[in-house]
Every structure is written in structure tokens, then in C-alpha cells.
Simulated assay, not measured.
Amino acid sequence: MKAVILALLLGGCAATAVAPPSEQAPQLAALAETDPVDTAHDAADDPAIWRNPRDPAASLVIGTDKKAGIHVYDLAGKRVSFTPAARLNNVDLRDMGAKGVVVAASDRADKDVAHVSMFTLDTVARRLVPTGRFRVGSGEAYGMCLWRRARDGALFGFVVLKDGRIDQVAIDLSGAAPKVATVRSMKLGTQSEGCVVDDRTGLLYVAEEDVGLWRFDADPAAPTTATPIARVDRRVLFDDAEGLALAPKGRDGGYLVVSSQGDNAYTLYRLPGVTYAGRFRIGGGAIDGTSDTDGIEMMLGNFGPKYPRGLFVAQDGDNAPDTQNFKYVSWADVLKALGLR
């Protein structure tokens, strides 16, 4: 099965530009880092970003500790609140207007039955308010990403199971508490985790860790066919291919960013055609760099003087002598270093 998948990827990605060797990736300094998580070893996992439109400097970063719960940090990296929860892995959020900022996390507490844990972000108190834990389907929940459909504002989630199955859930916010229902399933051949949805185009991107990147139509009525878009080639993208993030531009352009965990780098692909655009590492500054990164997140916009064009957040798998944490990088620095716009 894996040989077939690799063959499809090689055929489907023949037009991808040839990249330089990974060691040429420039190093960019982190401008801030979060307080370390409370538990040791493999604990911090995935971030999400809420940008405060009225006061960008008061924006917040959410980060999971998959052994203890979920943290909320300010832009200086200081932990401002913590919500205990067992084995939350990936997290995503959407600002739903009158319904508030909705946060969803993949819940691995039951390895036989996947769940989604839901919260709202109290942006004044700077804390998460639990709103329910919902069964999705059999298997261990791993990845998690949200999609707000452009045409009607409907909210959907995608739960990536550890075996490569992807369950799509519809999230109904019309009542006092959310309702979550599984509406379809898709499947990749081997272990997968990172995912992100482009709200503009309704395209779901998923990372199959040892194989490469795939694209699906996010609409629940669409076929479940996966399209290969980039392969793990150990030049541009190393296994494990982990977290995914989007830096959208215009109607369908911008960049897809991937954690190339195997060589401690981050790879950019130019949208909409998903062609190689560059890669970078985090390091070389007063704050230690990152390695073995799982989750990443990216949000454009003004976040204040340090982050005038956007904020990139990456989990750091080795923050010794402290426990793991998350590093903040200016998106303006990424674009400048790679000669991009």
C-alpha cells in the first residue's frame, strides 16, 4: 500500500520545483518564548493564535500540554491561564462573531474512541471555558483543525486519527451548548497528524508523516479522494512531516507552511499551485532555537512592533534544561530571509 502511495506522490508532484539542500535554510531568531509547560518529556504539542483586532498587542496564543491540559499565553510568552484536561493533542480556533471564539482540541484520553473537546475563549479574562467533550468515532484522536465555510459560516472540524483516517464533524453552535456530529470519513495509508483548512477555498491539507502532503475538498458533500501535493523527499521535506499552517494572500494565494521535523526546519509552499518557496530554521538569537517541532501556527496581521506582518508560533521539542515550550517568530523576518513577499 505504501509503495502505491509513494508512486502516486512521485507522479503527482513532478512539477514541484527542485529545492536546494536543507542545510542552506537560514536561521531566524525567535523574538519570544512561552513559559515552559508543567510536565516533562514529550508534552507540549500544538498552538493556536487569536488576534485581538482592537488591540493587537493583547492577542493570545493557546498551547496544548498533552499530559496535563491547555495553556493560554500572552505575546510576551507569559502563561495567563491554564485549563486542566487529559491528553489534548492538537488545537484550533475560529472567531465566530456573536458566538465568540470557539476552540476545539483533539482528545486522546480514550485510545479506542476519538473525542473532540470544545471551549470558548474568554478574551477579557484570557481563559478557556469548557463547553463539552464529544465522541467522534473509533480510534485514537491525533490531529485537529477547523473550517468555517465561506458561503454560510457553518463550522466543521477534522479529526485526524493516528492510523490515517480523517473524520469530518459538523459543529452546531445554535444552542446553549455545541453539538458535534460526524458527517463523513476519509483515509490516508499511514500515520498522519497535521492538518489545516483554507477557509477561502475550502481545501483541507493533511500531512502523512512519512509520505508527504495531501489535499482534500473540505465540503462534506464532496468526494473523499485525496490529491498528492508534495512528497517527503529528504531535501525539501523530511519525515516526519508534522504541523501545517497557512499564510493566506488574496483570493487563493499565500503560503502553506510545514514542520519538517526530521531536520528541524520549516518548509514553505506557494499557493495555489503548491510549489516550493523556501525553508528556514529557528535559532541564532538570544532565545534558544527549536528542534523536533510538532505543531505550528501562523496568523497574518499586525501584532505590534515585533510582529508587524504576522506571527508564527512553533512548538519546541527540546527546551532543555526546562520542559518544552513554544517559540514566537516574526513573519516579516521569514519573508525577508527567504526573499518573499
Score class of each variant (00 low, 15 high):
333 D>Y: 07
116 V>C: 00
117 S>L: 05
75 L>K: 00
298 M>S: 08
230 A>R: 03
285 G>S: 10
307 Y>I: 12
310 G>C: 10
7 A>G: 13
100 G>R: 00
281 R>I: 00
135 R>L: 08
8 L>S: 13
299 M>P: 04
173 L>A: 09
18 V>S: 12
171 I>F: 00
262 G>Y: 01
67 K>V: 14
194 G>R: 00
309 R>Y: 02
157 G>C: 11
8 L>Y: 09
127 R>T: 08
170 A>P: 10
157 G>H: 13
90 N>S: 09
234 R>M: 06
156 F>T: 03
136 V>F: 01
113 V>N: 14
222 A>H: 09
147 W>F: 10
327 K>S: 11
186 M>V: 13
152 D>S: 13
259 S>Q: 00
63 G>N: 09
263 D>R: 05
88 L>N: 04
199 D>K: 14
120 T>S: 13
341 R>D: 15
265 A>D: 02
76 A>C: 09
39 T>S: 11
158 F>R: 11
269 Y>Q: 11
208 E>A: 10
118 M>G: 03
142 Y>L: 08
8 L>D: 07
223 P>C: 11
305 P>N: 14
147 W>N: 07
174 S>M: 08
258 V>K: 06
133 R>T: 15
104 A>R: 02
181 A>V: 15
196 V>E: 01
119 F>W: 01
23 E>V: 09
19 A>W: 03
29 A>S: 05
148 R>G: 06
325 N>V: 13
4 V>A: 15
139 G>H: 14
149 R>E: 07
207 A>E: 11
213 L>H: 11
98 A>T: 12
8 L>M: 14
107 D>P: 09
234 R>K: 13
276 Y>D: 13
246 L>K: 11
17 A>V: 12
37 V>I: 11
110 D>V: 06
155 L>R: 01
75 L>D: 00
159 V>E: 07
290 T>R: 04
226 A>Q: 05
214 W>C: 02
140 E>N: 14
281 R>F: 00
73 Y>L: 02
240 D>G: 06
209 E>T: 05
88 L>F: 02
333 D>S: 15
307 Y>C: 11
127 R>W: 00
111 K>Y: 05
50 W>P: 00
188 L>Q: 09
265 A>I: 01
232 V>I: 13
293 T>W: 01
204 L>M: 10
1 M>C: 06
25 A>Y: 04
9 L>M: 05
138 S>F: 11
260 S>Y: 01
43 A>L: 05
295 G>A: 05
233 D>A: 11
90 N>K: 09
205 Y>V: 07
183 V>I: 14
9 L>G: 04
296 I>F: 12
51 R>C: 10
176 A>H: 06
171 I>W: 01
58 A>L: 05
226 A>I: 03
317 G>L: 06
29 A>F: 06
201 T>P: 09
174 S>H: 07
49 I>Q: 01
197 V>I: 04
249 K>E: 07
329 V>K: 00
113 V>Y: 04
313 V>W: 06
199 D>W: 06
26 P>A: 08
255 Y>A: 03
238 F>V: 00
178 P>I: 12
327 K>P: 08
106 S>I: 02
223 P>Y: 12
123 T>E: 07
26 P>D: 10
213 L>M: 14
306 K>S: 12
328 Y>R: 03
328 Y>V: 05
12 G>A: 14
243 G>Y: 02
97 G>C: 06
